[in-house]
Design a protein around this nucleic acid. Structure first.
Lengths: 137, 137
DNA sequence: GCATAAATGGAAATGATTTTCATTTTCATC
DNA sequence: GATGAAAATGAAAATCATTTCCATTTATGC
């Protein structure tokens, strides 16, 4: 089932999504966590969808542009994608099993803002992730 | 001139560095900020050094392993390297000119620790960088 | 129906990074 | 100084994610 947020965004933008975009959203929703373009492509293929890798990349790109999915990087530099939640948040990721917890980063927002001001930087964004071993691993 | 920190580390480890490692440290020191392996290779070549790209990658890898250089990622996923400072710190990076400021992240350390505890994660590390436009850009 | 634009996918191109492997250098020991 | 093992080096090939090209298919307005 489609998240309300996403639904709202789709409506707001009055932009019809291509089939591929919708498929990608569906998979990302089903899987929950982060996944790379290659992985998403494999999942779809495994399910019998003949979608092309090119299309997967294109769809993900457009979803990122529309702020519908988050893009971040694995340690090896590979891009990984995830549906955006309602609010800006950060992640606590298990480096063994990949399990992810969404966490609040109020302290980070403040820190980023303060630092940017102090050094005269404008238009700032930030990344902050925590990696460790979850209780199961 | 070689930073004291680095000198100390080299001594502490009682490990002789290969020429390439030293060359890379020297360039990183001279350039100051972050640079990719490809860029570092070009710089060395431009200066008449016939060092091979493979060696550059190997040297950087070993310096990262020894905690002498930091490795992080540009937005496109390319790896960029920089000499580690004395203490654990974070960066404020200009997304236009690449200018970098080292900043303290006391708030971040605390945040990471709290979150890890709350969700039962052990052995955690974290990344936190701020990207924006510096005053010149 | 028809024309035009958008979407799609396969293959080739790109670009960073890693691997392979043969050669060279270093260095301790004779 | 000669020698042999281990470490360092680099060119070329292999890998792998990502992008580009381009021809084909599909959706849409008229």
């Amino acid at each position: 089932m489609m998240k309300k947020v996403i639904q709202k965004k789709i409506t707001m933008m009055k932009k019809v999504m291509s089939k591929s975009n919708l498929k990608l959203i569906a998979v990302l929703e089903r899987t929950g966590g982060f996944a790379s373009a290659q992985e998403l492509h494999q999942i779809l293929r495994r399910e019998g969808d003949g979608i092309g890798l090119t299309t997967v990349y294109r769809a993900l790109q457009s979803l990122v542009d529309d702020k519908i999915v988050d893009l971040l990087r694995r340690e090896d530099g590979e891009a990984i994608y995830r549906l955006c939640g309602e609010t800006h948040h950060h992640h606590l990721v298990c480096k063994s099993c990949g399990d992810t917890v969404e966490i609040e980063g109020g302290a980070i927002e403040k820190w980023a803002k303060t630092m940017a001001e102090e050094f005269g930087y404008r238009d700032v964004g930030h990344t902050a992730e925590i990696f460790g071993l979850c209780s199961k691993c």
